[in-house]
Design a binder for these strands. Structure first.
Lengths: 207, 207
DNA sequence: AACACCCTCACGTAAAAGGGTGATTTTGCT
DNA sequence: AGCAAAATCACCCTTTTACGTGAGGGTGTT
């Protein structure tokens, strides 16, 4: 018998999961929460075997909540839930102690499989998530490290400033700005402004 | 009695909505689909009063599906479903004939309210959606219309091609590419490549 | 001390972009 | 048919980039 707790700010998702998990005879619902805080409070005086946890909560991100839960209750297995467009968080939440990763478009079978797998102490990735994981892993691990100054200049370029304007703003020579720009091109393997901005945005160097 | 049909690629959402709508005595479930195609096929020989439609489907975007449905079956009321981070599509889908807009974190009461409202011929916005709508309205309404060629060239610029490369690829003069580029600058109110790419990405002109 | 970065600056050339203006042909719409 | 918008091309000039190469000073690590 496995007791399952759900944290998700979408009532519909909770309703959906609850509705079909209740039909399973070896699973009980421990409860649910729509906020991280409510979840934390619940576990102060209750327990569960598995938490299905949305990584996108209104009051806290799932990464942090997962860390808190795993620190205080290492016996609970956390399965992260996310939508397709949040694939890049997989690595982070796994590092924070999650045992599984499910996309919200997972079908019922997959969810049961995930619960069963993490209860055996193993890790479960939904098929789609696995693809994203390996796809983004290479992207991420190969990501060059930009120096403070380089990031700063990249941001200013992205804002549309020219080398001259940047040089004035940072009180450095135009040539220096140019050098940084060249180094950015080399590091990010691009060769003009357009590609630089794209790479900057796609790899989250901006903001 | 209102019959409701659901189109969403998330089984959990379908399960969730179905599960609680079935408890309502003045609502029947007409069915559901996880793809736009399946939805279109269903309505070739079936009907429903209201469609709850995810704007993010695997095979087609909700905007287009909504247009198709409203063109062929104007009597059906479409309520768009979206997650928080897709707020900017509200205007578009409303223009394509949707009667309502619900965020997926809506609670059950809100969904029933939405269904009842659109059945009266009115438009329903969830509270959160309303906020986003008014917030993004100003942004969107001012959005310039780019011609086919301009979008094409914008994409190529964003891929990092120079004017010369673009001219070769499209079999047109460099000057022509340059003219289009300048027009893009004017329309998007920018004055260099960096800003152009940002604007292009932020305003979804790319892809 | 040796090494690896980072930040800084400089010079030079060629290519590309930025800005203005005008003009012709195609296309779409009424 | 007739107008408007779109797409095409051209020429001008200035500014900005792209790219190579070299070099000095600072910092932190081993």
């Amino acid at each position: 018998m496995t007791s399952v707790y759900i944290v998700d700010d979408h009532e519909l998702i909770i309703e959906g999961i609850t509705s079909f998990l209740q039909k399973e005879k070896n699973i009980t619902m421990a409860g649910y929460a729509t906020t991280a805080l409510a979840c934390i409070n619940f576990f102060k005086c209750n327990i569960a075997d598995v938490i299905l946890m949305d990584i996108n909560l209104p009051d806290m991100n799932g990464m942090d909540l997962c860390k808190i839960i795993k620190t205080n209750y290492p016996g609970i297995n956390v399965i992260a839930l996310s939508t397709l467009n949040q694939g890049s968080y997989i690595t982070q939440i796994i590092e924070n102690g999650a045992s599984g990763y499910l996309l919200k478009n997972a079908d019922k079978k997959e969810i049961l499989e995930a619960i069963a797998t993490v209860q055996k102490g193993k890790t479960f990735f939904s098929f789609e998530a696995g693809k994203i994981y390996t796809a983004t892993k290479e992207k991420r691990t190969g990501l060059p490290v930009l120096s403070k100054r380089e990031k700063e200049i990249l941001k200013l370029i992205a804002e549309g400033l020219t080398n001259i304007e940047i040089s004035k703003q940072l009180f450095i020579s135009i040539d220096t700005v140019d050098t940084h720009r060249k180094n950015l091109y080399t590091k990010l393997k691009v060769n003009n402004t357009a590609q630089l901005i794209r790479s900057g945005i796609e790899n989250n160097y901006l903001e």
